[in-house]
Nucleic acid binder design. Structure first.
Length: 507
RNA sequence: GGUCCCAUCGUCUAGUGGUUAGGACAUCGGCCUCUCACGUCGGUAACACGGGUUCAAAUCCCGUUGGGAUCGCCA
């Protein structure tokens, strides 16, 4: 048996939606797991809604997620893109026309000279006959008078699929990879338009089947909203004399129990997760749960996902998208899964956004991250937590300064400045893990406080504010260690000076 | 309404005939503590309902109810 070929076929009408990302993920996963091929095809036949900008946004989102494709356009202007190219449907019109005419010749399709307006009119007439409003008319489909005619007229025509014989009792069925066997009565299908009368572009079902067929796609994995398209597509495969791919329909992502997640529901664009500082694998770990789970595990790298994925663990029921849970997963990913090196690379742009031009390999970067990675749920938050380590002077929380920078603390702050100079090792002086240097420093600090007859509970916040400008930070010893003896001492002395000159407030 | 699909804590889920129905997020409380977090301990909280099958059902079957998808010369 030949290797599986899977595809993701987005329509470029906006940025990549997380639902689309989920679908792409499952296709990619099986391609990687099975040693098959992952194809990217752009279904850009709706010229009114498609934009080149969207094409690029989708490609970028896929790249950011790390869902690399083996075949397909490398960029928005890549006309070839691989052995089955072009991969933009808008560039394949001739092919669709050719297949459509072939179906007309073989009797599976016909030229319908009715105009869309005539069909609308027929619908209206039927509604009037039955005595209901047009949009209340159900279960009625337009039957073209051209269905069994072969005449060629000199006027525009749509090519329609002859879906089934009028008295067909056939059940169209397939074994769905996730839903199991599904049977749908053929007579519930209508004569679908393959190619419009007014445009060379194919309609969805036709373009999809022609492409999946000519591109050798073996597995069609998509959202459950496509279940209803499947029988029509099966008819099309049959008409083409083509082998059926395996279909798999994934559960939907819902906003709540009664609404499916739409483009207006907040953070649904993958690009937004990128700019908010999510980790690609963090997002993917959450998205994969919409359809797949592995025991109670919820943190997966892509490599792990490829290793563990299989179709027997795929679920059928729709899931409600929970932004909080997504963020919680990302937080755990930052704290527990991502390496300091990876975080160091990824946090740089977020530091830059704060005006901090920290370069990769900055001597304080790795240590800074180890002190704050348990405190952030996004890279943006991580950058915020690290901010004070990299500023020449910390940005002081003024209301906290009023509370903690008081004359009575000045002497202590000076004394601790000296302590820092004498006890905080420089980076060159220490080796080994951060924690190995921190523990003794922490101990020394406590001893010093005892010697000075200072209570940590009292002096802690002034010192914290001195070192960081903030009232919520990592522990004191950690900050001193990251900052180093000189900077620590400098900040403590400045705080001491400021405290000394602070006026005593009258309550 | 036709057709199709689905159904375990608020949410995502584990569970594949015998469990005190487990975990995670959220939530509530305790502990830890130099702040905020992290961590940790514990609490509240679920098998939609009704019939079968079986010694035994969250698990299998049927029905009901509830929810979703779809019904374009969009994708």
């Amino acid at each position: 048996m030949s290797k599986p070929r899977l595809r993701f076929a987005p329509s470029p009408t906006g940025s990549l939606h997380i639902g689309g990302a989920r679908t792409a993920l499952f296709n990619w996963l099986w391609a990687r797991k099975s040693g098959g091929t992952f194809v990217l095809r752009v279904e850009d036949t709706d010229v009114a809604r498609n934009t080149r900008q969207s094409v690029e946004a989708i490609f970028n989102a896929l790249k950011w997620l790390g869902l690399d494709w083996d075949e397909g356009p490398a960029h928005a202007d890549d006309a070839a893109g691989g052995p089955h190219g072009p991969y933009f449907q808008s560039q394949r019109s001739a092919l669709y026309r050719e297949f459509a005419e072939r179906l007309v010749r073989s009797g599976h399709a016909y030229r319908c000279y009715c105009t869309p307006e005539e069909e609308v009119e027929a619908r209206r007439a039927e509604a009037a006959r039955v005595g209901v409003e047009v949009d209340k008319l159900v279960g009625w489909t337009f039957v073209s008078p051209w269905r069994d005619k072969t005449a060629e007229l000199d006027k525009p025509y749509a090519i329609k699929l002859k879906a089934h014989a009028p008295d067909s009792k056939e059940l169209i069925q397939w074994k769905d990879l996730v839903l199991g066997t599904i049977k749908i009565p053929a007579n519930s299908l209508r004569d679908e338009v393959l190619i419009r009368s007014s445009s060379p572009m194919p309609l969805y079902n036709f373009g999809c089947v022609v492409d999946d067929h000519t591109m050798g796609i073996t597995h069609v994995i998509r959202g459950k909203d496509h279940v209803i398209n499947t029988p029509t597509q099966i008819l099309l495969y049959r008409a083409l004399g083509a082998e059926l791919p395996t279909f798999g329909h994934l559960p939907m992502l819902m906003k709540d129990q009664s609404t499916k997640l739409s483009k207006r529901d907040g953070a649904v664009g993958v690009d937004q997760y990128d700019s908010q500082g999510y980790l690609p694998d963090g997002l993917l770990s959450y998205l994969v749960r919409f359809g797949w789970s592995f025991g109670n595990e919820e943190l997966f790298t892509k490599a792990k996902l490829v290793e563990l994925f299989d179709w027997t663990r795929v679920s059928k029921s729709d899931g409600i998208y929970d932004f909080n849970k997504c963020r919680a997963i990302n937080q755990k990913f930052i704290a527990k899964v991502a390496t300091v090196d990876e975080l160091a690379t990824r946090v740089l742009p977020f530091l830059a956004k704060r005006g901090l031009a920290v370069r990769a390999g900055h001597p304080r970067l790795a240590d800074a991250i180890t002190t704050v990675k348990h405190r952030a749920d996004t890279l943006a938050a991580l950058a915020d937590e690290m901010d004070f380590y990299f500023r020449a002077k910390p940005e002081v929380d003024e209301s906290a300064a009023k509370q903690y920078f008081k004359p009575e603390f000045a002497a202590a702050l000076d004394a601790l400045a000296q302590f820092a100079e004498e006890n905080v090792p420089t980076r060159d002086e220490r080796s080994g893990a951060f924690a190995d240097a921190k523990a003794p420093l922490d101990e020394a600090l406590r001893k010093k406080l005892t010697d000075l007859a200072l209570d940590m509970k009292v002096i802690g916040q002034p010192v914290r504010l001195a070192l960081s400008g903030r009232i919520a930070t990592p522990d004191l010893a950690s900050m001193m260690l990251v900052l180093g003896p000189q900077v620590s001492a400098l900040r403590l002395r400045e705080a001491a000076a400021r405290s000394r000159s602070a006026t005593v407030e009258n309550p």
